[in-house]
Amino acid sequence: MSFEITTKDLDVFYGEKQALKKVNLCVNEHQITALMGPSGCGKSTLLRSLNRMNDNIAGVRVEGQVLLGGRDVYAPEVDAVEIRQRVGMVFQQPNPLPKSIFENIAFGPKVLGMKNKTALEEIAEKSLRAAALWDEVKDELKKSALALSGGQQQRLCIARALAIQPEVILMDEPCSALDPFSTLKIEELMQVLKKRYTIVIVTHNMQQAARVSDWTGFFLMGKLIEYDETAEVFSRPKDKRTENYITGRFG
C-alpha cells in the first residue's frame, strides 16, 4: 500500500487558537478517505492544509509536515500554486464561476497557459464525461454555469477540478447543499473517480462516510482520535469517543 499523502505531527494555528494538534494521517492512493467529526473539530482545517488553501487566511501558522508523494508541501521552495494544481478541491457550496460552462472547465488549463482552443475543447469534453455531466450539457456549453441545477453545478465543479489533471481531489462536504438524488449521483461518481484519483472527503453525514469511503478518520478538538478502515470504524470503533459520536450519543 502506498501513501499518497502523509501528515507528520501537523499543527495548525489560527492566531492563538490551535486548530490541529499533532495530526498523523496516511491517505492511501486510489482510495476514498473520509474525515468526520463535530463542527470545529479541525477536519476542514486538515483538508485545507493539504493543498495549502489555508495560506490565504490571515494569521494561520502551520507546523509539521504534509508529504505529497514524499515531498513536503510546506517546504520553503514549494509554491502553493503548484500544489493546488496537483491537489484539486471541491467545496461545500457549488461555486461555479459566473462564466459559461466551457469557460469554467477551461479556467484551470488557461491559467496554466493553455491557449489552443481545440485542446481546451477536448479537455472540456473529457472532464465533463468523467464527471458524468457531458450528456446533460453537451449542447449548451456556452450557457452560463449558474443556470445549472445545484447537483449539476457541483458536478461541474468536479469536472473543473479534473481538468487540471490533479492526483488528489479534496472534497469539503460536497453534498451538504444537494438533494438526496444529486448526492447519490456524486457518491456514485466518487466510486468511479477513485480508480484514477485519490479522494479525501470531509463530511458531516456519517452514513455518507460509511457508504463511500474506504478509510475513515474521526476528529475531535483538533486531534485525530481514530483512523481505520471504514468498516472497522463503523462496526467496532476502538475509541469510546468515536463510538459516542457515530452512534449519536455525542455530548
Binding site: M206, Q207, F234, S235, R236, P237, E243, T247
Partner: peptide, 9 residues
C-alpha cells in the same frame, strides 16, 4: 435507526 458500532453489533 441505522445502527453503527455497538448498536450495530
Amino acid at each position: 435507526q441505522q445502527p453503527v458500532a455497538t448498536d450495530l453489533r
